[in-house]
């Protein structure tokens, strides 16, 4: 069934039990991203260490479809407390998979539960949903390190 490949159980689990959700304390960069086709949105904050090479916390408030919500949760799980160098690697891997129309076999060591989004990559209309939180994180980090 196509539908089950899109909504893998791990995605539905992140959707129902989002990790790291909620806006928290100190932060240096904030990003608000909207998907103008459906109105889904996320506000995401990033708190970096003093040297600005390490993520201390990513916090976010969001509303939207199961794919966008699960993706935010997976992103949090994978990149929180990582170095910015690692963030780049993880981001690039997930991004490449989402742009591959389902052809790119991503490294699970890098993106963890993110590999479950391979099915989403086959639905062009949903790729944006899956990338929303990731784009917000990249943008917020960009602002924090300016």
């Amino acid at each position: 069934m196509q539908l089950e490949s899109l909504y893998q159980e791990v995605i539905l689990d992140h959707y129902r039990n989002p990790r790291g959700k909620g806006l928290r304390g100190e932060w240096q960069g904030e990003s608000h991203q909207v998907n103008p086709t459906c109105g889904d949105e996320i506000t995401l904050r990033v708190n970096l260490n003093r040297a600005k090479d390490q993520i201390l916390d990513i916090s976010y408030e969001s509303q939207g479809c199961s794919i966008s919500q699960a993706s935010a949760s997976v992103m949090y799980e994978q990149v929180n407390e990582k170095s910015l160098a690692d963030f780049e690697k993880i981001f690039d891997e997930f991004y490449a998979m989402m742009q591959s129309q389902g052809k790119f076999s991503a490294d699970e060591d890098l993106i963890g539960d993110g590999v479950a989004f391979i099915g989403v990559a086959q639905y062009p209309a949903r790729v944006k949903c899956a990338l929303l939180a990731w784009m917000a994180a990249k943008d917020a980090i960009g602002k924090a390190t300016q």
Binding site: L3, L6, C65, S66
Partner: peptide
């Protein structure tokens, strides 16, 4: 259920 998800199941 978010409308996007409603539409996706119907689409299926």
């Amino acid at each position: 259920v978010h409308p996007h998800d409603v539409g996706q199941v119907l689409d299926d």
